[in-house]
Nucleic acid binder design. Structure first.
Lengths: 222, 222
DNA sequence: GTTATCTTTCGTACACTGTACGAGAAGGGT
DNA sequence: ACCCTTCTCGTACAGTGTACGAAAGATAAC
């Protein structure tokens, strides 16, 4: 047989982490639906069943992908001003989820949070507690902030793929119904806001985030 | 051959809507992953390919499911006080998404909003506009509210299935790491909040919603 | 060197998925 | 009797995740 096992030093072989990294790459490039064991193996230059030596099953790969995404989110530090910490965390979370839109849909079905996910949550909770939030207040604030972040990411993922194209193809069949004047307010929003030259939906994120942060305060509220 | 075509009046035959309704039922009962064309056909007493007379493909079924869920959400009326309208809408949306948790993950990938979805959005936008929000303010408020609703539903869907069981099975493998004291704040939240006797995570929804509604006002803010 | 033991690769096979294609039955209109 | 529309479904195919077990390569024991 040929010399398998990779040609020496330049490809030191597979590993759990390399499988996950390649899976991330493929999911970003071709979408999560195109990520199959076979395509993943091909992308790594091996055969499908080889992957099962490094990974228990596909579900574990998906768990790993979610955890990889959490790796990219800024973890708050214990010292700084809490609102600024939460602001940074929120923005970096949104950006990570926009880089990997498929991760949002994955969140719903994951049952086993990975180490990066746990570390991230722990650090965030710690920052809030250190800022003077009670345990109950921390739970509430965290739920509120994360709900907003995930929800915004979900909406952003549901939007048409590219940025500011005419959205013609997607809206095509619906446009007929719009032309009937059935949805005047949606048309209003579309023409006066969304389709405006410099409009970027991402900016709306800041608005909502600041509104929430303004209303959040540790001690007084019960 | 036997007399197919359903025995007379009591089963008047299939229809697009009946297929969707059965799909909803199966998704609720066995989970979205268990919803296959074959299982759906069997549940309706037909053969797989028969469904394709009423439905273009599975993706259209999923689109229809999401639209069915929107059917269950209270649509705001033009007349009432806007905050109360938004409150009702938000709560009924959360409840609908809790009844059909799989719908949350589906939202990310749907590209063709159905009629009920469009009607719902249109009515909601109309209520905000009628309350004095400018077009831009409406877009922002809507984005904020929906992000919170969807995000909360996403988190709720990601929680362990039942309500207030010990969560032992899910947390099992992770518990070891918890025992090491690696995640003190998560333990704190778990013991002092989540695992408290009467605790219901759903109540946190109200807290965040009211916080957001309090900070939202039509005219003055820009 | 030889043999035994791990580590790592992967070929084959199975049950399952969505669905293209096309045959044919049921019923109505002429 | 004929056609035509409406509807049902059998067969087949390419794709999925993965169980099982055979083998090759590396390392250790003798």
């Amino acid at each position: 047989m040929k010399d398998r096992r990779g040609g020496g030093r330049d490809r030191p072989g597979l590993s759990h982490e390399k499988v996950l990294r390649k899976a991330l790459e493929l999911a970003d490039r071709d979408g999560l639906a195109a990520l199959s064991i076979r395509s993943l193996a091909q992308g790594m230059g091996t055969k499908p069943m080889t992957l099962y030596y490094y990974v228990a099953n596909k579900d574990q790969i998906l768990d790993g992908l979610v955890d990889l995404v959490f790796t990219e989110i800024d973890t708050p530090e214990a010292g700084g001003e809490w609102k600024e910490q939460m602001r940074r965390r929120a923005h970096s979370a949104r950006e990570a989820l926009r880089r990997h839109p498929w991760a949002v849909g994955l969140l719903e079905s994951r049952k086993a949070p990975g180490p990066a996910t746990l570390k991230h949550h722990e650090a965030t909770l710690g920052t809030l507690r250190a800022a003077g939030f009670t345990v109950q207040q921390t739970a509430r604030a965290y739920s509120l902030l994360d709900s907003y972040i995930y929800g915004f990411a979900l909406q952003e993922a549901a939007l048409p793929i590219a940025g500011h194209e005419p959205t013609a193809e997607v809206a095509g069949p619906i446009m007929e119904r719009f032309a009937t004047g059935e949805y005047p307010h949606m048309v209003e929003i579309a023409t006066q806001v969304v389709m405006q030259p410099g409009y970027d939906y991402g900016n709306e994120f800041t608005y909502g985030l600041e509104l929430i942060l303004s209303a959040l305060e540790p001690a007084p509220a019960d």
